[in-house]
Every structure is written in structure tokens, then in C-alpha cells.
Amino acid sequence: MDIVFSGASVSFAGRPALHPLSLRLCERRIGIIGLNGSGKTTFARLINGLLRPTAGQVTVGGLDTVKDEAAVRGRAGFIFQNPQHQMILPVLSEDIAFGLKNRGLSKEEISARTEAVLERFRITHLAGRRIHELSGGETQLAAIASVLVTGPDVLILDEPTNQLDLKNRRLIEKTIADLPEQAIVITHDLPLLDGFDRVLLFHEGRLEADASPSEAVRAYRGIVGC
């Protein structure tokens, strides 16, 4: 799906967090890298209208993120940096089903979809578990399942492998690689970017590089000086 930034910028209390930016994203796998505070999350939040541009415009599949906010939210799913916070109900299957309510689906349809998405991510055995008892990797899978069950076209993940051990990191990397959906991934986990179509490097609120993974990572190392 086409995501278009037209001179979009963000300031918080007059301080620019993202300088005016124009670009078009349509690749299947897009990575976002940069130091802490460089504007990655701000950029990502613009895409599904969680944040409104201070100036300029962002469209997703031709829909304006401000004017068509609800429709955009339905198309662009978001996985937060702390996925615990996006799980509202304490039990996994309940939480997934809850995301499907208010959408005019029947009870049977809701439970069928819930089961299907649990199966898709091979977490059927976690259905009755409490979100708080899940491991980091399991929580991340659960969050991805709870968002994809509603059928968005693009998934935005904010540092999905950040707090994971090596094994779970590999699991989530593979899960992301296998997603048929378009994915935009913010990460400090550079090996995750292997095979990505395009990587954006942010630095102090500006787009510093927009290139292949290897080139963008080289520019990133240039900034850090190692």
C-alpha cells in the first residue's frame, strides 16, 4: 500500500521532532533506524494517525490520516514498543476477541477468527493464558496476532525485538520475514534488516539516508563513528 508524506513535520511545544519530510513508501519491507530520540517513533505514529502532523500531510492508501483517521487505523496496525500496554484484557483469547467487537461480527465469527489467528502464529496453547504470564517473545507474538486479526494491510512495529533474548529475537525476526502483510519495522537489531527492500535512517529529526539495508547501516555507523 502507498504511504505518502507531503511536507509532513512534527513539533512538540515548538521543538521540532521531525523536520518537513516528503517521501513515498510502497515496498513490502521497510526498516527504520537511528539513535534514541532521532524521531523514529514520531515518524511511525504519523502513519496511522496516532500523531497528527504539525504541518503537511500524510496519506495511507490515498486516505488522509487526519480526515479519515478511523479508516486509516483499520489499514495500518501498530505494535507498540511495550506490547503489554496494548493488551487491554488480561487473558489472551479475550483480548484478541475484544479487538473484533463493535465490528458487526457474530459471536461465532469472532471466535473462529480468534482461533485462526492463534493458529497462524502457533500460539493456540497460549489462548487461555494471562498476558502477564507470557514471556517476552510470546507477548510480542500475542500482540502481533491481536493486531493482525482485524486485517490491516500494513503493520508498523516499534522495536519489536528490543527486550528479547537471542532465541526469541530469531523467532520474531522469522515471524516478521514471513508476514504476507507489508511491514514497517523500527529497530536497533540490524541483522533483522537483512532482505529488507528499503531502510530509512533518521538523525536528529531528519531523514539522513534512504537506501538499501547495507548502505543505510553504513551511514548509521558513520554517524556513530564506528
Binding site: R73, G74, F78, N82, H85, I88, N102, R103, T150
Partner: peptide, 18 residues
């Protein structure tokens, strides 16, 4: 701070869409 993130998550997941 959490409340802020949680409120955002509720919007992001479309819980309030009718």
C-alpha cells in the same frame, strides 16, 4: 505516562470504532 500509551493503544487497535 502509561495511561497516555494505553489511550493511544486503544485508538490504534480501533476499540472505539463503531
Amino acid at each position: 505516562k502509561d495511561a497516555d500509551t494505553i489511550a493511544m493503544a486503544i485508538d490504534a487497535r480501533g476499540f472505539r470504532r463503531q
